[in-house]
């Protein structure tokens, strides 16, 4: 009851102020400040969310690459230089990419996927003994049996779609070998 009375007092005072144009400057200034302030808040949250989603996709791709790096001969893979069979490696990569990113057989997103469009594996190269030392097309030095992968897809923008568009293009490039370690 007290709360309601207090609100009504404020409301009447607000009406009087607006009529007399006393204090209305504060309200107008406050509301004008509010719009860019809210946009900035949304921008902060959206940036963090998009960064997290990109990191999730990166995890999915690294895990798929590590799976693809299994050799048919475990002794070689465990103790020395080894040759990766290209077709088997690609099939394993595809299988785990679909599982980790929740994609169907055509690489289209299933419910729960972070992708909002078809996921395209733009480049998939295997560096076997004899191919290295070399550098991948994006300049990373390759010294061991490794995979070079470039994956491209779109994710849905959660807010500020009017300002920056409805989707964000994501490109992930990774060169993964069996000695891969965390970089973050």
């Amino acid at each position: 009851m007290k709360m309601k009375r207090w609100c009504m007092v404020l409301y009447r005072q607000f009406q009087r102020n607006m009529r007399d144009k006393r204090g209305s400057g504060v309200i107008v200034f406050g509301l004008l400040f509010l719009i860019p302030f809210m946009i900035f808040s949304m921008f902060l949250i959206e940036s963090k969310l998009l960064y997290t989603e990109k990191s999730m996709a990166d995890d999915a791709i690294v895990a798929s690459c590590l799976a693809a790096l299994k050799s048919n001969n475990p002794y070689d893979a465990a103790y020395g230089e080894y040759y990766l069979e290209p077709v088997a490696a690609r099939n394993t990569f595809n299988k785990y990419l679909k599982a980790n990113m929740k994609l169907d057989d055509d690489y289209n997103p299933l419910p729960g996927s972070i992708a909002n469009s078809q996921v395209k594996v733009e480049d998939f190269r295997i560096y076997n003994p004899g191919d290295y030392p070399t550098a991948c097309p994006r300049g990373v030095l390759i010294n061991k049996t490794a995979l070079h992968v470039v994956v491209r897809f779109q994710i849905k923008r959660p807010a500020l779609t009017g300002l920056f568009g409805k989707t964000v293009n994501i490109t992930i490039h990774r060169d993964v070998d069996n000695f891969y370690s965390l970089e973050e």
Partner: peptide
């Protein structure tokens, strides 16, 4: 008046 306006905003 300005304080009341500020409280409202």
């Amino acid at each position: 008046n300005e304080i009341v306006a500020f409280v409202l905003v």
